[in-house]
Amino acid sequence: MRKFGLTLAAASMLVAATTTAQAAGRDYISMVGSSTVYPFSTSVAEQFGKTTKFKTPKIESTGTGGGMKLFCAGAGTDTPDLTNASRRMKKSEMATCQKNGVKEVTEIKVGYDGIVVANSKKAPQFKVSRKDLYLALAKVVPSPDGAEKLVENPYKTWKDVNKSLPADKIEVLGPPPTSGTRDAFVELVMDEGCSEYGFVKAMKKVDKKKFKAACRTVREDGGYIEAGENDNLIVQKLEANPRSLGIFGFSFLDQNADKIHGSIIDGSEPTFENIADGSYVVSRPLFIYVKNAHVGVIPGIKEFLAEYTSDRAWGEEGYLAEKGLIPAPKAEQKKYADIAKNLTPVVLD
């Protein structure tokens, strides 16, 4: 019995000791946020940790929204210093930041990510337009008979949508609504596709909510299958079922080019070059946000940003391109490298 008492005492002392030790602060950079930016930020972090005297930053994969919440929770050193985002910070998130004392935030656009619609190499490559994708995936679509009203999606096969497409059942594997990739896909493909109908587009001006409901709601009758956040899993499923298509980030297509090919969307194939020069339309910018108040308090933030914005990292031949990040145009890179250097706070418009 005495032994148990001793262990108990030792354990509680251990807890007490570490509690006091932690109040002293942190000597490594803490970063949270998007799982899309995670592979790139971790590459920079690893390089940074190996080549400088600073500790390797700790990077959590929490999703863009979760990252913003943690980032904006306060200005103390128990909150993260940087956050990854696969979309721009929302005004509401900025307001939370301000309310919690995170006054100055620097925004750095690190590059672009293409979203691809791909299928197995055992099946022919798809050639679609954004309108086709919208018609195939939306819950409600403009009536096929030409009347200006929205009806429950009647299309069952790709051939129903567009005569030039194969007569296969519509079956698309994609990310769930919590994912940034899904947000971006809906915005870049579905919105555009449905804006091609004049009367739906007109709705945007009158009732934005109704427009969003019409364009952004994905069908739930089995045509679109939520396959979870794991893109590797989608790739495996595509291989097993050559008739289905999958939606995921470009880096997964890049790594699995022997198994799958990306569909041509609006006449442009998802290749590194096409995404970089903007001719492949389904691409989105990736950001990192910096808490200016932590620069100088947590060691190494400035140096970390310098590494991130250096040519050997985010340049055309840099190691991030190797990981699948599409570099921003030269002029844009210069602009954001300057912002990173001077820590110019962002003003969201």
Binding site: T18, Q22, Y28, S30, T42, G49, T56, I59, E60, S61
Partner: peptide, 15 residues
């Protein structure tokens, strides 16, 4: 604790 951590932790309070 779902995080990218390169340095091998050497104590209870290390990430």
């Amino acid at each position: 604790m779902v995080a990218f951590i390169v340095d091998v932790p050497s104590g209870f309070s290390d990430p």
